[in-house]
């Protein structure tokens, strides 16, 4: 009897493990194609970064080798130290950080408010006005440079970060459009229910819409942050004081008229983009979690 029970149990567990193994196999099979695809794409997409890194670690004489070596023969970590000490890195870093943070705050707030106005309130003429938003995306950037500079010069804003930051507090077509598309996906019933409860539009925006649009707002923060951090033209023409400059402009020190100190330039560039990578990893959290719109309905 006892052995019979044992047998049955053994059979059962055996079947369980077999089932589990099959399930796991199925999962592996199902994810094999996406995995392979991602792996190949990652290999391609990682080349520029790898090249920057390997160049940053090479000695000057190794830069001239042909064909270029895939791995540096010896790792010259001192390039990073040299790169940082050749420019007032900490000062530039602080300037860039301030501009970037203010830009992110401005972009997220202003675009959320404006996009809410375009997506969550039904007002007559709304969609026609929205076409104007779209239209502004097609204005080529060079035509704005001169008139805007004139304006900021008249305001005595040259050599301050205001021309770089303030425009972001007035929202921009790209982000308005992006957020609008996301907000339009949110079920209208949610808005109506909140309005029935007597909530003001701002309350609805803050308490209902904001939590639901976190991935999109994370994207706004990320994109506006990256473009502010890497912006070259803006800081170049508006910040004329050496110590007010940003990293993107400061990197020019490694370029001369006829030559570039590539290893140092790459080392400094890597240190420059490091905070952006951190920003990305941080905002990634929001993309992973996603929203749980479906559960409300």
């Amino acid at each position: 009897m006892a052995t019979q029970v044992m047998d049955k149990k053994a059979v059962a567990t055996d079947e369980m493990t077999r089932y589990r193994r099959r399930a796991r196999l199925q999962h592996v099979m199902q994810t094999a194609i996406p995995r392979l695809f991602l792996l190949i794409m990652c290999l391609i997409y990682a080349v520029p970064f790898y090249w920057m890194l390997s160049t940053a670690l090479k000695s000057t004489s190794e830069l001239a080798e042909f064909p270029p070596a895939l791995f540096p023969r010896t790792l010259h970590f001192e390039n990073f130290v040299l790169a940082v000490t050749k420019i007032p890195f900490a000062v530039y870093f602080g300037n860039t950080l301030l501009i970037t943070l203010l830009t992110i705050i401005g972009s997220v707030l202003a675009n959320l408010i404006v996009a809410y106005g375009f997506a969550c309130i039904e007002w007559p003429g709304r969609d026609k006005v929205f076409y104007i938003v779209l239209a502004t995306m097609f204005i080529p950037f060079p035509i704005a440079i001169v008139p805007q500079f004139d304006m900021f010069a008249r305001l005595h804003w040259i050599n301050t970060i205001l021309p770089l930051v303030v425009p972001h507090f007035f929202a921009g077509a790209f982000f308005i459009f992006m957020l609008r598309q996301f907000l339009l996906q949110i079920p209208r019933e949610l808005l109506e229910a909140a309005r029935m409860d007597g909530a003001t539009e701002l309350q609805i925006m803050w308490n209902v819409i904001l939590p639901l649009s976190r991935p999109a707002l994370a994207a706004v923060a990320l994109f506006s942050g990256i473009s502010a951090w890497n912006d070259f033209m803006g800081p170049l023409i508006y910040l004329q004081d050496d110590l007010k400059r940003t990293l993107a402009v400061g990197l020019q020190v490694f370029r001369s008229t006829h030559d570039i100190q590539f290893n140092l330039l790459m080392a400094a560039s890597l240190l420059t983009v490091l905070p952006l990578i951190i920003l990305f990893l941080f905002s990634q959290r929001f993309f992973i979690k996603g929203v749980t719109v479906g559960s409300i309905k």
């Binding site: 991602l38 794409m41 990652c42 997409y45 990682a46 520029p48 970064f49 920057m52 990256i226 890497n230 560039s269 983009v273 952006l276 990578i277 990305f280 990893l281 990634q284």
Partner: peptide, 10 residues
């Protein structure tokens, strides 16, 4: 992270 990397690089 890797796929997004080129969007950050100069």
């Amino acid at each position: 992270a890797i796929l997004y990397l080129p969007s950050i690089l100069p």
